Computed example of a mutant assay.
Amino acid sequence: METEHIRQLCAWLAATDIAELDLQGPGVHLHLRREGATVQEMVALPTPTPIAAGSPASPEIVRAGSVGVYRHRHPQRSAPLAAVGTAVQESQALGLLQIGPLLLPVTAPREAVVLEIPEPDGAVVGWGTPLVVLGAS
């Protein structure tokens, strides 16, 4: 998160009656606390990454790119798009993120095996929510 974005959030927060803002996303955790018309506390920390990203031998987490309802299968099909233990190809659909009537594919960033699907079918998810864990193929 860039410094200018944090300054803008501080200005917006100071102009409201919101006392505290906690924002988390991939790679960042921002905590702002307002007292009166000024922001008193500001902490911006990188989110720790326990596993080296991009390494084919380490698990990789595919996260939600938006708010929506996570679907394991297309509404017109009975089989899931990807199940635990199955091999997937790069760009293959792992699931769908439903935003109203719109269905957006959640795709595999590389060739891999599905290790885990943490969210159940039909779960309401937020931006950055882990949806699928991939391992080496």
Rank of each mutant, 00 (worst) to 15 (best):
E2W: 10
T3C: 08
H5W: 15
I6M: 10
R7H: 13
R7M: 11
Q8S: 08
C10K: 15
A14I: 11
I18M: 01
L21V: 12
D22Y: 15
P26E: 10
G27Y: 01
G27T: 03
V28H: 07
H29I: 08
H29A: 10
H31P: 02
H31W: 01
R33D: 06
G36P: 03
A37C: 03
V39P: 02
V43Q: 11
V43W: 09
L45F: 00
L45V: 13
T47N: 14
P48A: 08
P48Q: 12
I51K: 10
A53D: 13
A53R: 14
G54D: 00
G54I: 02
S55I: 03
E60N: 09
A64N: 01
Y70K: 04
R73E: 07
P75S: 06
Q76W: 12
P80F: 13
P80C: 11
L81K: 00
L81F: 02
V84M: 04
T86Y: 01
T86C: 09
A87E: 06
V88W: 02
S91K: 12
Q92K: 04
G95L: 01
P101G: 11
L102V: 11
L104Q: 10
E111K: 03
A112C: 02
V114R: 04
L115C: 03
P118T: 06
E119L: 15
E119K: 09
E119A: 15
W127I: 14
P130L: 02
P130I: 01
P130A: 09
S137H: 15
